[in-house]
Measured scan of single mutants.
Amino acid sequence: KKKYVIKVYFEDTGKEVEIEAESKEEALEAAKRLAEELGLKIKKVEIYP
């Protein structure tokens, strides 16, 4: 089964997080949740198959 690796870059902090997920949708949801939890804004998202 294919996994996606999503790199999320946050504004202000210069922080980046990698998330593995089964689908792009799932990964983007996780990225949004994470940003909310951390109180950060997402600057850029890169998706690698």
Rank of each mutant, 00 (worst) to 15 (best):
A35V: 02
A21E: 09
K2L: 14
K32S: 14
K15G: 06
E37Y: 08
T13L: 11
F10H: 00
A30C: 10
K41A: 15
L40W: 08
V17M: 09
E11I: 12
K7T: 07
V45I: 04
E22A: 12
K7S: 03
K24E: 14
I6A: 08
E25L: 05
I42P: 01
E37K: 14
E37L: 07
K32M: 09
K1Y: 05
G14C: 12
E46D: 07
K2P: 09
K3D: 10
T13P: 15
K15L: 13
P49L: 14
S23I: 03
K32P: 01
E25S: 10
E22Q: 07
E46P: 00
A35I: 02
E11A: 06
T13R: 07
A31R: 00
E26G: 14
K43D: 14
L28I: 06
K24P: 08
K24L: 10
S23A: 03
T13H: 06
I6W: 05
V45S: 02
K43Q: 09
V5Y: 12
A35K: 01
E18A: 05
I6H: 01
K3L: 08
E26Q: 14
S23L: 04
K2T: 11
L38E: 04
A30I: 14
I42C: 02
A31Y: 02
E46N: 03
E11G: 04
V5C: 02
E46T: 10
E26T: 06
E29M: 07
E11V: 15
A35Y: 02
A31I: 04
E11D: 13
E29Y: 15
E18W: 05
D12T: 14
K41C: 15
A27Y: 03
E36F: 10
K43H: 12
K7Y: 04
E36I: 10
R33Q: 03
L34A: 08
E26K: 07
K15W: 05
A31G: 05
K41S: 14
K7A: 04
V8R: 00
S23M: 03
E37G: 09
V45C: 13
E22C: 14
R33G: 12
E29G: 05
I47E: 08
R33P: 00
E46K: 06
P49S: 11
L28W: 14
A27H: 01
D12V: 09
K2D: 13
F10S: 01
L40H: 10
E36W: 11
D12P: 10
S23D: 12
I47G: 03
K15S: 12
E46M: 05
L28R: 07
V17K: 08
K7P: 00
E18K: 09
Y4Q: 03
I47H: 08
K32W: 09
K3S: 15
V45F: 09
A35T: 02
V17A: 08
K44D: 05
G14L: 11
I47N: 02
E16L: 08
K2G: 12
A21I: 06
I42N: 00
S23T: 14
A30W: 15
K15F: 06
I42A: 01
E36H: 12
K1L: 13
K44E: 12
L38I: 04
A31P: 01
L28H: 14
K32F: 15
E22Y: 12
D12C: 13
Y4V: 14
E25H: 06
E29R: 12
A30E: 10
E20Y: 13
K43P: 01
I42H: 00
T13A: 13
E11T: 10
Y9G: 02
Y48R: 15
I19N: 01
I19P: 00
Y48H: 11
D12E: 12
E22L: 08
L34G: 01
L38P: 01
A31F: 02
K32H: 14
E11Y: 10
I42S: 00
E11Q: 13
E37H: 09
E37C: 04
Y48C: 14
P49D: 14
E16S: 13
L40R: 05
A21H: 07
K3P: 15
V5R: 11
G39Y: 02
L28T: 04
A27D: 00
L40Y: 12
Y4F: 06
A27L: 09
V17N: 03
T13D: 08
Y4I: 08
I6E: 00
L38S: 05
E25A: 05
K32E: 10
E25T: 13
G14H: 12
A21C: 08
I47A: 05
K7H: 06
K24M: 09
K1W: 09
K43E: 13
G39Q: 06
V45G: 01
D12W: 07
K32Y: 10
F10G: 01
D12K: 11
K15V: 15
E37A: 14
E18F: 05
S23H: 03
V17Y: 14
L34Y: 05
A30F: 10
I6C: 02
E25P: 08
K7C: 07
A35D: 01
V8W: 02
K44M: 11
L38F: 07
A27G: 15
K1R: 11
I19K: 01
G39I: 01
I19V: 04
E18V: 11
L38K: 04
Y48K: 05
E26V: 11
P49A: 05
I6R: 00
V45A: 03
P49E: 12
I47R: 02
K24I: 13
V45H: 03
